[in-house]
């Protein structure tokens, strides 16, 4: 019984982080129709940003999540302006560019940061929810992820620009015909999506050890969530984050952790077959 409760609490905390992990990917996919293969690199850049600034200036890792968002957002903007916007008509070139960006980031991190695994020193102790131990850092990570997610959703749904971004997801031509500069919205969406990936990296850095290529494992989880939740469906992504966290945790605890990737793959396959538009049926095909 304790184990089950433990699994559920652990999954909820993990699900919150997974949500922020997938949000940036989802926005970029929804608005720009870009499958952002650079997502893993952006995540790990956020983690390194926290690590480096924390080491140099000793700022609180959770404050740094916001800094990561800006730093990686700017990197994303540069990537978009210097390269991606010229690849609108050639998805293959774009895919190559984004995968290449991953390799470039990994290589640069290896050159400048070495092969050491990095960790951000933070330990705020453990709380007990009845018999269930909860690490305070994970609770704050969860709270941060949810707060950032909610702020993003509110900005997207309640502001004029946010609504325009959503409108681009629906119908880019109609946005153009309304006199709205969709190229700027695309840049904005990519910047925000990259920034959210950076924030996710910052959050992850508070509880995971990471190296130059650690982004990939997280990017795979993010891709699975986006597919399960429905392409471009943000609320679907939220539900899928919790589901994926539950599946990964449950499979580890009740079956074997060696089966987690298999379970993730089967979940994605199952959703694609049964609900191709995502778990809430509102995503794009």
């Amino acid at each position: 019984m304790d184990t089950l409760a433990n699994v559920i609490v652990s999954s909820i905390l993990l699900g919150g982080v997974y949500f922020i992990l997938s949000l940036g990917l989802n926005i970029i996919l929804g608005v720009l129709d870009i499958v952002n293969f650079a997502h893993g690199a952006l995540i790990i850049l956020g983690a390194y940003s926290t690590f480096l600034i924390n080491r140099a200036l000793h700022w609180d890792p959770f404050i740094l999540v916001l800094v990561d968002m800006v730093v990686v957002g700017v990197i994303g903007a540069v990537l978009y302006l210097c390269y991606l916007r010229f690849t609108v008509n050639s998805p293959l070139v774009r895919m190559f560019a984004l995968i290449g960006f991953n390799s470039v980031v990994a290589a640069l991190l290896l050159i400048f940061m070495g092969s050491d695994y990095r960790t951000v020193p933070i330990d705020l102790g453990t709380w007990y929810l009845g018999p269930i131990p909860i690490r305070v850092t994970q609770v704050i990570a969860f709270a941060f992820a949810i707060a950032l997610g909610v702020i993003t959703i509110v900005l997207l749904n309640r502001t004029k620009v946010g609504k325009a971004v959503k409108a681009v997801t629906d119908d880019r031509t109609s946005v153009q015909l309304a006199g709205i500069n969709d190229r700027r919205l695309s840049l904005l969406a990519f910047t925000v999506g990259a920034g959210l990936a950076g924030a996710a990296g910052g959050i992850i850095s508070t509880y995971v050890t990471f190296g130059s290529e650690s982004g990939l494992a997280f990017a795979i989880i993010a891709f699975a969530i986006v597919i399960v939740g429905g392409l471009g469906d943000i609320w679907g992504g939220a539900v899928a984050s919790l589901l994926v966290a539950l599946v990964l945790t449950g499979v580890t605890v009740y079956l074997s952790s060696a089966l987690t990737n298999t379970a993730l793959f089967l979940l994605v396959l199952f959703v694609l077959l049964v609900r191709p538009r995502g778990i809430l049926g509102r995503g794009r095909v």
């Binding site: 629906d170 119908d171 031509t173 309304a178």
Partner: peptide, 30 residues
């Protein structure tokens, strides 16, 4: 297209092409 629209040309496309994820009010406001 967006720059031409800002000059004062609006177009209603065939098939209406609304923003389905937004409300009527949001569609109009955009």
């Amino acid at each position: 297209a967006d720059a031409r629209a800002r000059k004062g040309i609006s177009m209603v496309q065939e098939g209406r092409r609304l923003f389905p994820s937004l409300t009527v009010r949001d569609n109009l406001e955009l």
